[in-house]
Design a protein around this nucleic acid. Structure first.
Length: 272
DNA sequence: CTTCGTTCCTGGAAGC
DNA sequence: TGCTTCCAGGAACGAA
């Protein structure tokens, strides 16, 4: 599942293939992922635009186009954007962006849950994008804000980490990993954390995100970067996907549970 | 305002 | 072996 580190890895690997290129044509094979505007206007609005920059906000990829337009892509669960130099169609290819140099940018998606939008810069019609919380790792997310948000919430702390309007970019993998690193149970009420625990969790969030980017993302099932390559962070996961296996720190059996509506893995001995 | 349940979608794994 | 059922989960949405 592409979370902040995966989307950032896509941005970095894709950029050299796209910047300065013009979108010559678009072929859409699954209409329902185009959320705004209609498929016709989406296609005509993109044709001829130059990709000036590729940006990321939370889990959203933002293609900065000429004419003050933004192509916004959210990969959701199984989406991928892959630069392809030849004419071959990748597996599960859903949208084909034909570029001015003859290369292709393919949007692939097994489950077709991803979303694409073409908007004007400054538009706020994508609610999930305009209501995003602060970005970790760029100094936007500070400990004061983080503590205040946790103190205000009565639900499980994991739910706050997953809430994109509270903090941008954290998904199920990095939430579980951060909570393990901080030694905090995922189902603890957010407002029950001590100041020391909040600080520990804050540092853990920054650490797991940084490590994820350094390892070019976690390929648990489907994730691939902009060149179709897998990440390596899955080799370093401590709890996610490790249910019923021994904890790498203490040897206790990692437990699977359900917190905030998500599958959750944690160590009952290391996390309190 | 928060919180929770439902929905979307496909393929792989588990169960019978 | 082959069929059916369940599960993976990010975000939008409606309801409490």
């Amino acid at each position: 599942m592409p979370e902040l580190p995966e989307v950032e890895s896509v941005r970095r690997t894709l950029s050299p293939h796209l910047l300065g290129r013009r979108i010559a044509d678009i072929k859409i094979y699954v209409d329902r992922m185009i959320k705004h505007p209609g498929v016709e206007e989406f296609t005509s609005g993109l044709k001829g635009r130059v990709i000036n920059n590729l940006l990321r906000r939370g889990k959203y990829l933002l293609f900065d186009l000429d004419g003050d337009k933004l192509l916004v892509v959210h990969l959701r669960m199984t989406g991928a954007l892959i630069a392809v130099s030849g004419t071959e169609t990748p597996d599960y290819g859903r949208i084909d962006f034909v570029l001015s140099d003859g290369s292709h940018l393919w949007y692939t998606d097994v489950r077709t849950l991803g979303t694409l939008y073409l908007i004007n810069k400054g538009d706020t019609l994508i609610k999930g994008l305009s209501s995003l919380g602060p970005e970790p790792l760029t100094g936007q997310l500070d400990i004061g804000y983080f503590s205040t948000v946790l103190q205000k919430r009565k639900g499980p702390v994991k739910g706050v980490l997953l809430d994109q309007s509270a903090i941008a970019g954290i998904g199920n993998i990095y939430a579980d990993e951060a909570l393990f690193l901080a030694g905090i149970r995922p189902d603890r009420k957010a407002n029950s954390l001590s100041a020391a625990e909040m600080k520990k969790l804050y540092s853990a969030v920054l650490a797991v995100i940084a490590q994820g980017i350094e390892n070019r993302g976690t390929t648990f099932r489907d994730y691939k970067d902009g060149e179709g390559k897998k990440g390596s962070n899955q080799e370093y996961l401590l709890v996610y996907g490790r249910g019923k296996q021994p904890c790498k720190k203490c040897g206790a059996v990692i437990e699977n549970s359900r917190v905030a509506g998500r599958g959750t893995a944690y160590c009952p001995a290391c996390q309190a």
